[in-house]
Amino acid sequence: MERIAFFAFSILCFALLSSCGTDEKTPPKPVTVDMQESPTVSGLKKDLEERGYEIFDYIDEKTGDTILMQQYYIAFLKSGPDRSQSPEVADSLQALHMAHLARMYEEGYADISGPFGDDGEIRGITIYNTPTLKMADSLANMDPMVTAGRLVIEVHPWWAAKGFPLR
């Protein structure tokens, strides 16, 4: 019986993940920047503003370059109130969690995700590339680990320069 409930839950999560939107309208696709293509700052600013993103720019005193800053949303994935699932259910939820994060990345809504290296309350982060906190929070809360109660989400606005890679 537990196995049937587990599979039904997995199918329900997959169906929700596959068919759910965050709103009645399809959310706007995030803007990605390939600085190799040298988009103009003014063109990029206009595009981001039209899509509803919060931005500002400044002049780098050292280089004289215009640096365009965009607001992203960083979601902290924290230990949730229900971590009592069987190992089989927890493994299935982990697979669904990874599929959710892959989907967010593939669709351009998440730029980077990963777990923390310790065993603390904060289990990992995802940086969402969305124009609003509401959208980032909605996408983060669609995670099957969150809907199952194994994780809870805490989202904060976060600023970063467009086109600067991690080093």
Rank of each mutant, 00 (worst) to 15 (best):
V31Q: 08
V31E: 09
V31I: 14
V31K: 04
V31C: 12
T32Q: 06
V33L: 04
D34F: 09
M35L: 01
M35W: 04
M35G: 03
Q36S: 10
E37A: 05
E37I: 03
S38R: 12
S38W: 11
T40S: 09
T40I: 11
T40A: 00
T40C: 01
V41I: 14
S42E: 08
S42T: 13
S42K: 00
G43R: 11
G43C: 08
L44C: 06
L44N: 04
L44T: 10
K45D: 01
K45G: 04
D47N: 14
D47Q: 12
D47S: 10
L48K: 00
E49T: 05
E50N: 12
E50V: 05
E50S: 11
R51N: 01
G52R: 00
Y53K: 07
E54S: 15
E54W: 06
I55C: 07
I55L: 08
I55D: 10
I55P: 14
F56W: 08
F56R: 09
I59R: 01
I59Q: 05
D60G: 04
K62N: 03
K62L: 03
T63G: 03
T63S: 00
G64V: 06
D65N: 13
D65H: 11
I67L: 07
I67R: 06
I67G: 09
L68H: 04
L68E: 08
L68I: 06
L68D: 08
M69Y: 08
M69R: 04
M69I: 07
M69C: 09
Q70R: 15
Q70V: 00
Q71P: 11
Y72V: 05
I74S: 14
A75H: 09
A75R: 04
F76D: 15
F76H: 15
L77F: 14
L77M: 12
K78F: 05
S79F: 05
G80Y: 13
P81W: 11
D82P: 01
D82T: 15
R83T: 15
R83G: 13
S84N: 04
Q85E: 03
Q85N: 09
S86A: 01
S86Y: 15
P87R: 00
P87C: 06
E88N: 10
E88V: 07
E88W: 05
E88Y: 12
E88P: 03
E88I: 11
V89D: 13
A90I: 09
A90E: 14
D91L: 15
D91G: 15
S92M: 03
L93F: 10
Q94T: 11
Q94M: 05
Q94V: 09
A95I: 02
L96Q: 00
L96A: 06
H97P: 03
H97Q: 10
M98V: 03
M98N: 13
A99L: 13
H100T: 07
L101M: 11
L101A: 01
A102V: 13
A102Y: 10
R103N: 00
M104R: 06
M104L: 13
Y105N: 13
E106P: 07
E106W: 10
G108F: 04
G108E: 02
G108I: 02
Y109T: 07
A110Y: 09
A110R: 11
A110E: 11
A110V: 14
D111Q: 13
I112T: 06
I112S: 00
I112W: 06
S113F: 01
